[in-house]
Nucleic acid binder design. Sequence first.
DNA 1: GCGGCTGTCGAGACTGAGTCTCAGTTACCT
DNA 2: AGGTAACTGAGACTCAGTCTCGACAGCCGC
Lengths: 152, 152
Amino acid sequence: MTTQAGDQLAPDDLAGTLDAAGYRMTDARRAVVGLIASRDGTFDTADLVADARRRRVPAARATIFRTLEILAAVGAVERLDLPNGEHSYVRCDTRGHHHHLVCTDCQRSVDLEELGMTTITADVELRTGYVIDRHRLELFGLCPNCQTRLPS
Amino acid sequence: MTTQAGDQLAPDDLAGTLDAAGYRMTDARRAVVGLIASRDGTFDTADLVADARRRRVPAARATIFRTLEILAAVGAVERLDLPNGEHSYVRCDTRGHHHHLVCTDCQRSVDLEELGMTTITADVELRTGYVIDRHRLELFGLCPNCQTRLPS
DNA sequence: GCGGCTGTCGAGACTGAGTCTCAGTTACCT
DNA sequence: AGGTAACTGAGACTCAGTCTCGACAGCCGC
């Protein structure tokens, strides 16, 4: 049910996913996927651009943005908004509807499936008359590691 | 428990809130609060800037941004991220922890208190070992009005 | 294996939300 | 009423994200 942030967005799977969705597997895309795979936790576009430059990976800024957009579209990556207002991305190790629990210290993230939100949304629909078709839930806290590392 | 988006952020209450928090009540701030009060549903900074210009309200762009920041700090307004990635603000008719349910068509918003998230977060803590100290939950759907207005 | 069609790429210009600066103004305390 | 610190407006600035366009390279059919 939960997936550790370590096991992976296998680049090969992704190639298949992109292919199936009608996208070409190019060097630049492979490179960006590689950069993302080597990241732990959340990251933003500036991180990737810096990584690409540092590792002399062939991927221009615009391409990184474009690839991220595609990866988000196929659900390999998700855009999220940190509590501080910045927004960043996380790898999704899970496909389909899920949520993210992000460590506010080390940024490491865990995917969470099925949290019983349907009960809550049904209740809200009943109370308000709205028909709910989408929700965004993000959880933030300290991961076990950071808890021991940072004795509050 | 739910609060209709119609009854208000009374400007006077707000003056009190700002005062208590050590902020001065200036013409510009009163003006911005007025603009927000006359808005229904979510809005973004561009909306307010346009309103201010149209209504010849004395509030410069920078001041609108600054005031919005303060109002968010005192909880009179909340910044949220629409499903389309844009981000905007909503008036909070409720103080303290609550969530927003936003109509994806007319943008009208309803405040929701206590949705039983503690059960969920406790469960997640148990499963993951994280200590959760914050979450963001936003619900999107069609309000009763728009449901009848837009026979799908 | 080889064109050719088309999707993609890189580089850099562009856009626009949000921030910052600074000199002038104003709310509020005494 | 006067002093002071908070606030304001105007406009310069920043920087994430988008767009453009000529060059390039996957991938399909032959």
